[in-house]
Amino acid sequence: MSQNDKYYMMRSLEKALFVIETMATNNHWKLKTLNEACSIPKGTLQRILRTLEELGYVHQVERGGAYALTLKFHKLGKQIASQSNLASVMQPVLQKLRDNVNETVNLSILSGTDMVVVHQITSSHALQMDSIIGTSFPAYVSASGKVFLAFSSDDELRNFIKDLRRSNSDINTDKINMIYKEIESIREIGIGLDFEELFQGIRCIAAPVFNDSGTIIATISCSVPTVRLDRSFSQKLLREIPQAAAEASRLFQAPETTFNLDIDAIAESLVKP
């Protein structure tokens, strides 16, 4: 950003947005803790919180106690996600995948340290995995998130790890090493897997969608109840999902990408308890 561009920035708005982004990393904040996390003068922080509270974006969990963001942000996220051009462009591909496998199909993008579902087509099964459009979930434990990280640039990945460690005290060096190890595997095979790491009883397979410059722009995934994952069906999913992602990538004129995917071996791992 040039000096001229910075001249037009509203510092008060910049501070307010920083407070919102910080608050989004936890479900509630004591004023003192939030003040320390944001390094903003207490008086300024209180005015920001009061303004957000008056507008319905923040509420006090208990009078004079902790503050929390309201679901008004979730509503805005849903509206933005529902207008995503990605979803409209890829709708035929997503519908075809859903018809071929009859499982819930998700289109997701990375936002901060989370993946956000921007479009979804549910299965016709009574037992199904469905999410509200705009739903977010931790990227590092989800199939879609692992794929997005694997095909992000080195700088983007470093920034992600930095933000993750700052927002999640449970992330230690061992977990970071595990993330990098899984990323290396995904870069080779072209898919990411979630073995009930996000939702118990649900396993997920995800593949990347690229644009004309070879940059990842989204992931296509299927969320499947583990009870329906036999060897044959797992093999079908491992063929259909990468095929759908490749077809979606061609819509954006992406260069052809070849991966070394051992369908039989991975199908075997998917059906293991």
Rank of each mutant, 00 (worst) to 15 (best):
Y140W: 10
V141W: 08
K96C: 12
K162T: 15
S108I: 11
E156K: 07
H125D: 12
H125M: 07
S111H: 07
S167V: 06
T113R: 02
E103P: 04
I133S: 03
H125I: 06
N106P: 07
H119L: 10
S142P: 01
D114Y: 11
S124F: 08
E103F: 01
K146E: 03
F160L: 01
L107R: 05
V117C: 13
D99N: 10
I121P: 00
V93P: 00
R165L: 04
T113K: 02
S123F: 05
R165E: 12
Q120K: 08
R158E: 15
H125G: 09
Q128N: 13
I161F: 02
Q95H: 08
R158V: 06
L110C: 01
D99P: 03
S153E: 09
S124V: 08
K146T: 04
V105S: 04
S108Y: 10
S167Q: 08
V147W: 00
K162L: 13
S144C: 12
S108M: 15
D163G: 01
L97C: 07
Y140R: 04
S108G: 08
L94T: 09
I161N: 04
V117S: 08
N168W: 09
I161C: 01
T122I: 14
S144T: 07
Q128R: 15
L164E: 06
I109T: 14
M129W: 11
P138H: 00
D99Y: 03
L86R: 05
L127F: 11
S84F: 03
N102T: 08
T122E: 12
D130V: 11
S153I: 07
G134M: 03
L97Q: 07
G145S: 05
L127Y: 10
S123A: 12
D154M: 15
K162M: 13
K146P: 09
H119N: 15
S124I: 09
S136G: 10
S169D: 11
T135Q: 10
V147N: 04
S153F: 05
A150R: 04
E103K: 02
A150V: 04
I132C: 06
T113G: 01
S142I: 03
G145T: 00
N102M: 01
V101E: 03
L149C: 09
M129G: 09
N159H: 15
S142W: 01
V89H: 09
V93G: 02
D99G: 04
F148T: 13
M115H: 01
V147I: 09
